[in-house]
Write a protein that binds this DNA or RNA. Structure first.
Lengths: 189, 189
DNA sequence: AACGTAAACTAACAATCGTTAGTTAAAATT
DNA sequence: AATTTTAACTAACGATTGTTAGTTTACGTT
């Protein structure tokens, strides 16, 4: 069964608060106050606090997995795939600046779905590294430790949620293009 | 008056727990348990929970400010200064992988010193951006939006605390060198 | 008009939170 | 030897936590 509109509203409000203070510092009463209702009323729509966090994190994680799957399946060179990954991150992060905070910082508070999340993350990072390694083999990418390249690029992409809201005048397309230039070709002239 | 050894021990234990679960999710009883004492006994050494967080964050922030100040004052070209900044981050992050987690994720729970921290952070980012902008003027650095370059590089450097412990076999010097190559000249061959 | 449901409410629960007060035992200082 | 200091302890505080139970109100459907 799909989440009701009211439930999505609660999740959206919670995401905003989770970004501001982190999951642990946000109380059900905080969420309820923004919703304009009492804390107990939240439980007409959600099972518990954990369910909110789980929904935020798992749906975003799966969106990334799906996006990467499509990119992998395309028959393109590695640099092009990396550009698509950058676009994927700019896109998802721009549409979910709040939820991305939980995905990055509050995943350790998952219970039931913690292992599932960790598996998805490992799958994502492995696929990312494979694209880099393939690029090295095909002589498209410099022969540097692939782990360092994955770490460097992914760190930037994972921080987009903090940065995009401060530059909401900048078009996602332009941002992705500039990021590709910086991340792939560097800043040195 | 300098912090006593016992106080530093508490702060160190707290840092470890703060990295694992975040400041808000760590209780004084958690810290005490690892110390092998009761929660109330912590208060013989520290004023309150907030003081622990403040010490961790402010001392690290000041270490970054001091390091950047020395780099700025040197009469070197901008690319060299950026390489020094990368070394600075690798150095501080390697020696404080736990505390860096609080600096990055728990600063919003500061009270008395929140404004001080925000001022230091703004000062740091401004200095960073000035180095980039100067590099563009001197034709050392590509003429792309400096904000994007600052964001990109700083995001990677700020994530080092997560990555260094997973690669503790890698020498900091080598890591800094590889990072300089990737961040400044890109990965594209 | 009667009924059922959705979504709010009040009230309260046991658990846990940061913190304080007062005490004790050992170590350091006089 | 007497005294002060350090650092632990027990016990408890009021506040807040996530959550449950039971109730009320409004609305759509019969």
């Amino acid at each position: 069964m799909n989440p009701s509109p009211r439930k999505l509203e609660i999740i959206s409000v919670a995401s905003t608060l989770f970004k501001e203070k982190g999951y642990s510092a946000v109380t059900m009463r905080d969420i309820a106050k923004v919703m304009g209702i009492k804390a107990a009323s939240l439980y007409n729509h959600i099972k518990n606090k954990e369910e909110i966090l789980t929904f935020i994190i798992i749906s975003l994680a799966e969106e990334f997995i799906d996006g990467l799957e499509k990119i992998k399946s395309g028959n393109n060179d590695c640099i092009y795939k990396l550009k698509q990954i950058i676009i994927l991150h700019v896109d998802i992060s721009s549409r979910n600046t709040n939820g991305m905070a939980s995905l990055n910082n509050d995943w350790m508070h998952l219970k039931d779905q913690l292992n599932h999340y960790l598996a998805l993350r490992m799958e994502y990072e492995n696929s990312f590294r494979n694209i880099i390694s393939e690029g090295i083999l095909k002589n498209e990418i410099k022969n540097i430790n692939p782990d360092i390249m994955v770490f460097s690029i992914l760190s930037t992409l994972r921080s987009l949620y903090l940065w995009v809201p401060k530059k909401d005048d900048m078009e996602p397309t332009l941002l992705a293009a500039n990021l590709s230039e910086v991340l792939l070709k560097g800043i040195n002239k």
